[in-house]
């Protein structure tokens, strides 16, 4: 659910969100602590970031707040701004510094590690505002906080929109 339903004109989202709550950070912790250690992350080295196996399904419309990868987004969806779920709109610069969370893909039931990168250098896109906060924590823990403008280290720090990039599947 988000604050500004008027601006997204998507009231049905409220219903969807309330009925799909997961305590996922806690869940992830439990998985790491007690789960089996069969690595599903298909990359062993940081400098060889590969896309994971294509998921069995990637349900939903990335240009809606409900879309699973948007589970902790706070800002404009780049899909509505000339970019896509994982690419910035033309003429913007993707901030390398960001925060990283996890969202469950209802398509294959797996927890994906998602990097929320801001696209920077133009006035705010203004379309498709979303504010979802699964796993979000207050600003005193920046690496899990979506409240900051993460346009940091870019030529201009003006916030335009946010992409969400799959970094891999969380180890179960």
């Amino acid at each position: 659910m988000n604050w500004l339903d008027k601006l997204t004109e998507n009231v049905s989202r409220n219903v969807a969100k309330t009925s799909s709550r997961r305590g996922f950070l806690g869940g992830l912790g439990a998985m790491i602590a007690g789960g089996s250690l069969i690595p599903l992350l298909p990359v062993a080295r940081a400098d060889a970031m590969k896309q994971p196996e294509p998921p069995t399904a990637d349900p939903g419309d990335p240009a809606t707040c409900d879309y699973w990868r948007n589970c902790a987004i706070d800002g404009y969806l780049c899909s509505c701004c000339g970019g896509s779920v994982n690419s910035c709109p033309p003429g913007t610069e993707m901030s390398a510094i960001t925060w990283i969370g996890t969202c469950k893909n209802p398509g294959d039931g797996k927890d994906y590690i998602i990097s929320y990168n801001d696209c920077c250098g133009k006035a705010p896109c203004g379309s498709c505002f979303c504010n979802r906060n699964e796993g979000d924590r207050p600003t005193y823990r920046p690496h899990t906080s979506n409240d900051y403008n993460w346009c940091i280290g870019t030529k201009s720090q003006a916030y335009h929109c946010t992409v969400n990039i799959i970094l891999g599947v969380a180890i179960k």
């Binding site: 309330t18 796993g135 979000d136």
Partner: peptide, 28 residues
Amino acid sequence: AWLAATDSAKRLYVMMHENGGEGSHDNP
């Protein structure tokens, strides 16, 4: 977004929502 305040009588006011859970902390 801002959920707590006080008055001249020093009472504490907190904004609340029902059916909360993980991720609901910014909910109206």
